[in-house]
């Protein structure tokens, strides 16, 4: 058997793939569900924190900055493990799925808050002054004038960060979440062959390539004529 045949036998084993692709597919659906929950809750929470921060209430802002820095500094896996193995000691028993969701949503929230905040502060002060001088309230100015401009600036970094963090769903395999990597790993142990990992990689591409393309489309769609 030549090197090439051995390579194909190891990573593209048709028999193994045929047996385990339904497992990988079910893992794909778990990953999609988990990713969607993380993106929606993480981005909403991040935006909410950024808007709260723009109110300029000192003690509240210290708290927000502390929480944001905390979740930006901790490795996501550490947060997952802390929640999964730590919360049961206070009589909360989150599943691996919920632990991964909460952990990555908190991390995305932290990074998204920083990105939204940077976008809000990047809008020139003159925009605030013009809007307020016509009688718009603080809230009307923030939501109607400043935020639409801030969101356009934030879309590229936000898309990148969202993809990076959502890929972290693979960490759920550590706390027994049967997402793509978890399914692929157990299939590898059962079949003594790494081909399921190839399927897993393909599943990640199927999921995230469209997201990357969608991000690019959103960037062009929301750019206004300069």
């Amino acid at each position: 058997m030549g090197n090439w045949d051995r390579f194909v036998e190891t990573f593209f084993n048709a028999k193994v793939m045929a047996k385990y692709w339904p497992d990988i597919l079910s893992g794909l659906f778990v990953t999609i569900e988990l990713a969607a929950l993380i993106v929606v809750t993480g981005l909403i929470a991040g935006l909410a924190l950024a808007l709260l921060r723009s109110l300029g209430i000192r003690p509240l802002n210290w708290l927000i900055v502390f929480v944001v820095d905390l979740f930006r500094a901790l490795p996501p896996l550490v947060i997952i493990v802390l929640i999964y193995f730590g919360l049961p000691s206070v009589d909360l028993v989150p599943s691996g799925f919920v632990s991964t969701w909460i952990s990555l949503a908190l991390v995305l929230m932290a990074f998204a808050e920083e990105i939204f905040w940077a976008g809000i502060t990047a809008v020139p002060r003159g925009q605030w002054e013009a809007a307020r001088s016509t009688g718009l309230s603080f809230g009307q100015t923030l939501l109607g004038v400043v935020l639409p401009q801030a969101l356009r600036i934030t879309i590229p970094p936000l898309t990148n960060r969202t993809i990076a963090i959502t890929k972290g769903t693979a960490l759920g395999s550590v706390v027994a979440v049967s997402e793509i990597l978890g399914q692929a790993s157990s299939a590898v142990s059962n079949s003594y062959n790494p081909s399921p990992l190839t399927l897993g990689a393909a599943a990640y591409l199927v999921l995230f390539l469209p997201v990357v393309v969608l991000g690019r489309w959103i960037e062009t769609r929301f750019a206004w004529k300069r």
């Binding site: 013009a130 001088s133 009688g135």
Partner: peptide, 17 residues
Amino acid sequence: ARQRIGMVFQSFNLYPH
């Protein structure tokens, strides 16, 4: 009150969007 007081700025400050 500010509705009764119009203001025009050096840098225009139109909403670009």
